[in-house]
Design a binder for these strands. Structure first.
Length: 878
RNA sequence: GGGCGCAUAGCUCAGUUGGUUCAGAGCACUUGGUUUACACCCAAGGGGUCGGGGGUUCGAAUCCCUCUGCGCCCACCA
């Protein structure tokens, strides 16, 4: 048949992707087969494909395609996440470019812009996944803000509220002044920073004495409502019960005593600002202190900032310190290294801020989730296992989850206020139900929708994505539907360890709460993709390659192989384009192997050469050995090792050895029996490689034979393991050493391969002659003759105790031969000595297992035999 | 501050219960090669006191202690 001499990946890849789509192979519906399900970690709806996604989704596709080949009902559900804070930030920025201020828009107007944006960019990343070859069931594509998905979120909120697990509280929360929203504890990243520690004097009321405090935030002095000392601090007994005057605003505040104060730190005096520090808030609560908030929502000073009003807190800090200095109240400044909370998304420094927020009580919810991963009969396995510790630590120290966000893009909190009081609200799925509830609560039967004001906050994105494995199958709204019963729990979850808490842990929590069952059986945590210098790949560094450009340059198959070649689970992946090149070269190698078989002329009348027959038997044994190895790797999620095993099988064993052995001489035909067997082996190779290189393998598969759509490789049957002939493998290994020996002699003596040579063997090992025809072919030997006496005037080499002779035309360098033999003899004698030393150690013979002792005895015997051979050779040269 | 993990060839990493295939793989490197599938190729080869030190054992890359150097997660001390 006519095939292109070069493999054109870009054409081939789109062709087969279309073919798979048109034949609906990615689509799954419940049937009698065993399901194999993966839900995609939904990428941000407005995101673009980066290397992390490439790795992640390649792994998922490998797992899905393998499951499909194993005959399971493979279902990979794709989708995107509305990513409330990230998307809202992007929309706000875009509006700003157009001169529109978010605050000038109504809620509906803003949301309409956000939806426009979503519709414009929303599908991009999913299209990119198709280029990578991902075999997702696109008919099932979900978005976390689809109507039914949102409905599920609201239903869960109402339910948790009814259970008393969701509550509203006035608490110190993490405030992002840039996004102007609260964040959960998980969204706060602690960064080490060096700042100034300011020492400031406060005058004691009615005295000309001062106390000095240390603070990193002088601008909050204006919010001070007490000075605190440790009651046991003997230095300050004179201060007890006195008052001090707050600098700048000249308010009088008390000196209080609390054990919290560390006598050793700073001056031992602490300024207490309950509005701007979690600890100060607690002290304030204990001592009934006033709370003075000096900041606006955007981090600028409010009217309590007096003449600093309107300045950003950072600017105000400097200005206040200058002012203090000019007043002679700034004693000194020091450098201090401490940790500062920053926003995961906006990088802004977090302000502790008091406000009314919604919280989810976690204490009881986490219990089944802890048991599921860490219990005695753990239902969920993490790969690699080391993350179980991290998981445990987080789960056991969990605090209530702040789920409200002061954002518009997301599910709006279904709480409806009927009055101005903090408790004057009802929680319901919709306004109609809310009115009913509000009527009951207030006794006012004339309440209308217009009388109710819905809470303006939206829910944390993760409060929707934690339902993902259930809600994509409509498992929340219709818990008894056929799909959720069939596909849930899913099998494997593949994601990065950075969202272990954000997402993975919470899905487990939600799964047990709403299905009473785990959401997935195994969690495969990939590493971060880094560049060659170990730097994290990021847009700002510009070290992240363009994913689509890579696919263009190296083919999707090549990139997939490149990514997987060095990515053990949980280890960071040092990405190097050279690996993609290796992937592409591998594809080329296989294509050329196919090209070779395609060039052969088949003859039905010639007999199968013995060398071909034995080589095919050997390959079958080798293939099955590898197959067993691959199964083991897959069971441990060692995809990199599985791929490497296949790589070596195809590259070395199939192309390097088998094809070379069965390849007919120039312009000679091949016998039909060999040809058919080679092609059937080729097909088996394609099957096991298909999950990794889906396009190339499908392409060759379809060239090998006419196939109906039902016979496509993507839905072929994974090979079954057959019994392995171990003897033939060791015979081959021996033969390959002999061939190596021949090649070495040829190289040393500069004998071209086309010149056939004579070959003689003293078979001390009594090795089987099964592979002699193979040795003869690959060594280009005239004959192999078995002899008992050394050949004179020949190059020699040894494998074990066998000696091989290749007669030379010219003179042999006897000196060099003697030297070579002597070196070999010395080495073997040294080896023998060490083995014998071990064997003469009574404690070794008594203590070691029998098979270990036997193996040492075998080594001894082999060495003795070899020494004999070497000595005989040396004697014959003298 | 608390916890977890890592250190094996130039690079990226395997090495499961201490002995059986214990010092390995891929890449890179060196040398040679226009044999009629493939130079995106073939053949051959060099290269490691298994981070340092100590211990347990007949036997340690593997178990224990210690030191050094990295990485990650968690954390409200100004």
């Amino acid at each position: 048949m006519q095939i292109p001499s070069k493999y054109d990946a870009s054409k081939v890849e789109s062709k087969w992707y279309d073919y798979w789509m048109n034949n609906n192979y990615f689509h799954s519906k419940p049937d009698e087969r065993e399901p194999y399900t993966i839900v995609i970690p939904p990428p941000n709806v407005t995101g673009v494909l980066h290397m992390g996604h490439m790795l992640n989704n390649t792994i998922q596709d490998v797992l899905i395609r393998r499951a499909r080949l194993l005959g399971k009902n493979a279902c990979w559900v794709p989708g995107t996440d509305h990513a409330s804070i990230a998307t809202e930030a992007k929309v706000v920025a875009k509006l700003k470019e157009q001169g529109i201020d978010k605050n000038d828009l109504t809620r509906d107007e803003f949301l309409s812009h956000a939806w426009d944006w979503t519709h414009e960019y929303g599908g991009v990343i999913l299209e990119q996944l198709k280029k990578l070859g991902c075999s997702c069931d696109w008919d099932r594509t979900k978005f976390t803000m689809d109507d039914d998905m949102s409905e599920a979120v609201i239903k869960v909120f109402v339910d948790l509220h009814q259970k008393g697990l969701i509550y509203r509280g006035y608490r110190m929360v993490n405030w992002d002044p840039e996004a102007q929203t609260t964040l959960s504890d998980e969204e706060v990243i602690h960064e080490e920073r060096t700042d100034k520690l300011y020492y400031v004097k406060y005058q004691i009321e009615d005295e000309n004495e001062y106390v000095t405090i240390a603070t990193t935030r002088p601008e909050t002095i204006l919010g001070d409502t007490a000075i605190c000392i440790n009651p046991n601090d003997e230095r300050f007994t004179n201060l007890k019960g006195k008052k001090v005057i707050v600098p700048l605003c000249n308010r009088t505040i008390p000196i209080i005593e609390d054990d919290y104060v560390d006598i050793e730190f700073g001056t031992g005096c602490l300024k207490v600002t309950p509005a701007h520090d979690v600890n100060d808030k607690e002290i304030g609560d204990r001592h009934n202190l006033e709370v003075i908030d000096v900041l606006n929502a955007d981090g600028s000073m409010n009217s309590f900032g007096l003449h600093h009003e309107g300045k950003d807190r950072v600017v105000a800090r400097k200005d206040v310190s200058k002012e203090l200095e000019s007043l002679g109240l700034l004693v000194k400044t020091e450098s201090i290294t401490h940790n500062v909370g920053t926003s995961e998304r906006t990088k802004a420094v977090i302000e502790p801020r008091l406000s009314d927020q919604w919280f989810l009580k976690m204490e009881d919810l986490v219990k089944p989730a802890i048991e599921a991963v860490l219990g005695e009969n753990a239902d969920i396995k993490l790969f690699p296992k080391k993350f179980e510790n991290t998981y445990r630590h987080w789960m056991e120290n969990i605090r209530d989850w702040n789920i409200s966000r002061q954002l518009l893009w997301g599910q709006q909190i279904p709480a409806y206020f009927y009055g101005d009081g903090k408790e004057d609200f009802v929680v319901a799925e919709n306004v109609e139900k809310a009115i009913e509830l509000a009527k009951e609560r207030t006794g006012k039967s004339n309440l209308k929708a217009a009388d109710l004001k819905q809470d303006t906050d939206a829910l944390d994105t993760w409060f929707s994505s934690w339902l993902w494995p259930m809600s994509v199958f409509d498992g929340i709204l219709n818990p008894e539907n056929e799909e959720i019963k069939y596909y849930y729990p899913t099998n494997d979850l593949v994601t990065g360890p950075d969202i272990l808490f954000f997402w993975v842990a919470r899905m487990i929590i939600a799964g047990y709460e709403y299905k009473g069952e785990k959401p997935f059986k195994n969690v495969y945590l990939t590493g971060l993709v880094r560049d060659k210098q170990r730097r994290k790949m990021s847009k700002s560094l510009g070290n992240s390659p363009d994913a689509l450009k890579l696919i263009e340059d190296y083919s999707a198959d090549g990139v997939r192989v490149g990514l997987l070649l060095s990515s053990a689970a949980g280890n960071d992946l040092m990405f190097d384009e050279a690996l993609c090149q290796q992937g592409k070269a591998f594809g080329n190698k296989i294509w050329n192997a196919f090209n070779l078989t395609n060039l052969w002329e088949i003859n039905y009348n010639i007999k199968q050469p013995n060398s071909s027959k034995i080589a095919l038997d050997w390959y079958e044994a080798k293939f099955n050995t590898t197959l067993v190895e691959i199964e083991d790797h897959f069971s441990k999620y060692r995809l990199s090792d599985a791929l490497m095993a296949i790589y070596k099988l195809i590259y070395d064993d199939f192309c390097g050895w088998l094809l070379e052995i069965v390849k007919p001489a120039y312009q000679q035909p091949i016998d039909a029996k060999t040809y058919n067997k080679v092609m059937s082996i080729f097909e088996d190779n394609l099957k096991i490689l298909h999950p990794f290189m889906p396009f190339l393998t499908e392409d060759i598969w379809q060239y090998i034979a006419e196939r109906t759509p039902e016979e496509a490789l993507i839905v072929a049957k994974w090979p079954e393991v057959k019994p392995i002939n171990k003897v033939i493998i060791s015979q081959f290994d021996f033969a390959s050493e002999v061939i190596s020996g021949i090649r070495n002699v040829r190289k040393e003596k500069n004998i071209a391969f086309k010149d056939a040579i004579g070959f003689f063997v003293i078979n001390n090992e009594k090795s089987d002659a099964a592979f002699d025809d193979v040795i003869s072919k690959l060594g280009n030997l005239d004959t192999i003759e078995y002899i008992t006496e050394p050949v004179e005037g020949a190059m020699t080499f040894r494998v074990k105790s066998n000696e091989y002779f290749i007669p030379m035309e010219g003179a042999i360098d006897v000196e060099a031969e003697i030297k070579k033999l002597t070196e070999e003899l010395n080495y073997t004698e040294g080896f023998l000595k060490s083995v014998q030393k071990k064997l003469s150690n009574e404690r070794f013979v008594a203590g070691a297992p029998e098979q270990v002792v036997n193996s040492e005895k075998k080594k001894e015997a082999d060495a003795l035999a070899k020494i004999e051979t070497l000595k005989a050779s040396l004697a014959s040269l003298d």
